[in-house]
């Protein structure tokens, strides 16, 4: 049991080792930052000195974001604005924080040697299992709600309760995907960067939504893990997100919809203009800066 408890602790901490690969982080400029919190460049200064242009934003991809350190991801996120609240299905990809060494941040804290390696392996396992199950989110912009796309119910079976057949389904690209864990959408505070709002995906009060199932949806809610996500738009059809559990940052994720990207990226590339549904603050926004 203690081994399982240990596994759970690792799982709850949600840290992992990203598999080795040859990719580089996004080819955009980053501000100089040291190792400790006090040596990170202030976001307002970063954005003033190194705003991201539409051309910069077009270079960012889900794959190269996965190669970025957490500091690089934070610097990108802070130079984005919320953009429009998305609509329709989005593919999801999640990745855990990496420290300056390129390893999972928790493994860095634990240090080198066997312990760190064990942490790397445990978190990598979690990431791969989860990747096979969670496929993204489906936004209902007009009602300001979303649901998560689950591809494999078997693994959630102990938490689903009865009447599994009543779980909502959606056909995405010819494949069935189950819709669970509803959340509300609104414009609200970023827990990383207060200078402008983010789109908040909030699981706290979802029991009044139609189709809500206490099992398992309550696990994400106010009596559960208190999950709260926030997203900002990189470019049309492509968002960078941050996920929090009990207000503690846990991991990053991307959401993408190729059809929206195809439709709207051309105009964005040339003008940098985008629809803003949320408060953009008083510092000039990224994409429109230059």
């Amino acid at each position: 049991m203690m081994r399982r408890y240990g596994s759970l602790v690792y799982s709850a901490l949600l840290l992992t080792l990203l598999t080795a690969c040859d990719h580089e982080p996004p080819p955009v400029k980053f501000g100089e930052s040291g190792e400790g919190y006090a040596k990170k460049i202030d976001f307002a200064r970063l954005e003033h000195d190194l705003p991201l242009t539409p051309a910069d934003l077009m270079k960012i991809t889900p794959a190269n974001l996965e190669e970025a350190t957490q500091e690089q991801l934070d610097q990108i996120y802070a130079r984005l604005s919320a953009g429009p609240i998305p609509d329709g299905p989005y593919q999801g990809q999640a990745f855990f924080p990496k420290g300056s060494s390129g390893r999972a941040r928790f493994a860095e804290i634990i240090g080198g040697g066997l312990k760190g390696l064990v942490v790397d392996l445990k978190t990598a396992k979690l990431e791969h299992v989860a990747e096979a199950v969670w496929k993204g989110k489906v936004f209902d912009r007009s009602h300001r709600i979303l649901r998560n796309r689950i591809n494999d119910l078997a693994i959630l079976k102990p938490l689903l309760g009865p009447d599994v057949a009543t779980i909502q389904k959606l056909d995405v690209d010819g494949k069935d995907t189950w819709l669970l864990f509803p959340a509300k959408l609104y414009c609200g505070q970023s827990l990383l960067d207060g200078r402008r709002e983010s789109i908040i995906i909030d699981y706290a009060f979802t029991d009044d939504l139609s189709g809500y199932r206490e099992k398992p949806d309550a696990l994400a809610g106010r009596d559960g893990f208190e999950i709260r996500d926030e997203i900002r738009m990189i470019r049309p059809g492509f968002y960078l997100g941050r996920a929090y559990m009990k207000r503690v940052f846990v991991l990053n994720f991307t959401l993408s919809n190729p059809a929206v990207a195809e439709k709207d990226s051309g105009a964005f590339r040339t003008s940098g203009n985008l629809q803003e549904d949320c408060w953009v603050g008083s510092q000039r926004t990224t994409a429109m800066a230059k």
Partner: peptide, 10 residues
């Protein structure tokens, strides 16, 4: 499942 739960929400 808890891990996925977190993952989903996250």
């Amino acid at each position: 499942a808890i891990g996925i739960m977190l993952y989903v929400g996250l």
